[in-house]
Computed example of a mutant assay.
Amino acid sequence: MKKKWPVIASIAASVTGASIAALGYTLSNKVMYIKRKDQQFIFDREIAANRFKLEWYESVPKEDFLVSSINGYDVSCQMIHSVDSKNTVIIAHGVTETHINSLKYAALFARLGYNIVVYDQRRHGATGGKTTSYGFYEKNDLKAVVEEVRRKIGDDAILGIQGESMGAATALQYGGTSEQLFDFIIADCPFSKFEDQLQHLMVRDTPLRSPYAIKFIDYFVQMRDGYNLKDVSPIDVVQNITKPILFVTSLEDTYIPPKMTENLYEKHPENSRLVLFEKGAHAKSFNEQPYDYEKEVLKFLVDFNISYVPNNYVNPEKMLQTQ
């Protein structure tokens, strides 16, 4: 009987190890392979909400192009030639979305005198990539897009980046670690540290409360995708950005707490501005108050001497009042 105990113990250890590994793969899968929204669903949603101005979009010239990423795949991009200018804004969407979601900002920037580039982030839409990494690998894709757009528009044109949620976190991580070929960033509801963001969502949405759960996930993400969660941290690099930043969030955001945006602003108070909107769930500041959002963007561009009010500019709120 005694001879059987080592065998039983070995089996029990193997079963326990296999269970732990299975749990680690399951939890890390939720991070690396987060479920994405269907592009047709995004299109229909934006049309129904009257945020995607289809008639305007179809009336302006567009150019589809691909950019090769150092990560080993092509990034799918589209340039919207909305104005007679070289000034351009690159818009980076959030996790689970595609470039279709970015188009809600297109008419805004067109009114302010900018052409627009939208693109699909890694593993979203038509862009390659096996996993989602919340800015760790995505910042390299954005770097490639910025370099190509700068080549297209020349060194004298103004080039901005607007990012929403993961797109904002990507923009800040790119801006803080690369040559700054851009002239400004608008960071809408970014997380400050991805570890803290995961912890917040675990406490909010699951029975898991211990920070050791994050360390457990981190081990499997590092083993499977080659990076540590602590390396996905805009707040560690935001102070390296020398160009103006507009930080935007809404006080009703429970997905990425507004305190994270405030902390990022506190790390970069010089040459930046923080706008806290009263209304709006996560990434919905523009959806809830589009006219006020546009006013804040315009004020930022003018106050920081980035660009000026176009001669033909009319705030859309005033246009509606005269109709």
Rank of each mutant, 00 (worst) to 15 (best):
V117W: 08
V275S: 08
L198C: 02
V149T: 04
A213V: 14
Y265L: 10
V297H: 00
C189L: 04
V83P: 03
A106C: 11
R224V: 14
Q180G: 00
S178L: 11
I217T: 06
N71A: 10
Y313P: 08
S192V: 13
D292F: 04
K2L: 10
C77W: 05
L27F: 03
F109D: 00
G129R: 07
E147G: 02
V221D: 11
E266T: 08
P190S: 08
K130I: 04
Y212F: 14
E317L: 15
W5L: 15
G72P: 14
A281D: 13
L103F: 08
Y293I: 04
K267S: 09
F300C: 09
R150C: 11
N140T: 00
S68Q: 12
I235V: 11
G128C: 12
E278G: 12
L27I: 01
G24S: 06
N87K: 08
S59D: 13
P6V: 12
G154W: 02
A21D: 09
A48M: 12
I214V: 15
Q321W: 14
A169W: 01
R111I: 04
R224W: 13
F182I: 02
E266Y: 09
G24I: 01
Q40C: 03
R45W: 06
I20K: 05
Q39K: 08
Q162M: 09
Q239S: 15
V118C: 03
S59H: 02
K299G: 02
L276T: 11
F182Q: 01
I100W: 06
K193Q: 15
S210R: 12
A18W: 04
L320H: 12
L264V: 05
K230I: 14
V232M: 08
E148C: 07
A49D: 09
K279D: 13
D120G: 02
K86V: 06
K259R: 09
E270V: 06
S133L: 05
K35A: 07
Q173I: 15
R151Q: 12
N305L: 10
R122S: 07
S250M: 03
T254P: 01
L276K: 15
F216I: 11
V238T: 05
S210W: 13
L320A: 12
L142W: 01
N101P: 01
F277M: 15
Q222Y: 10
G129T: 07
A187N: 14
V146N: 02
L54V: 14
P207I: 12
D38Y: 05
P316W: 14
S76E: 09
F184G: 11
M260W: 02
F300M: 05
L172A: 00
V232K: 10
E58D: 15
E296R: 07
K62R: 15
I34M: 01
D44F: 05
I47H: 04
D303P: 00
Y137F: 03
T127A: 04
E55W: 13
F43W: 06
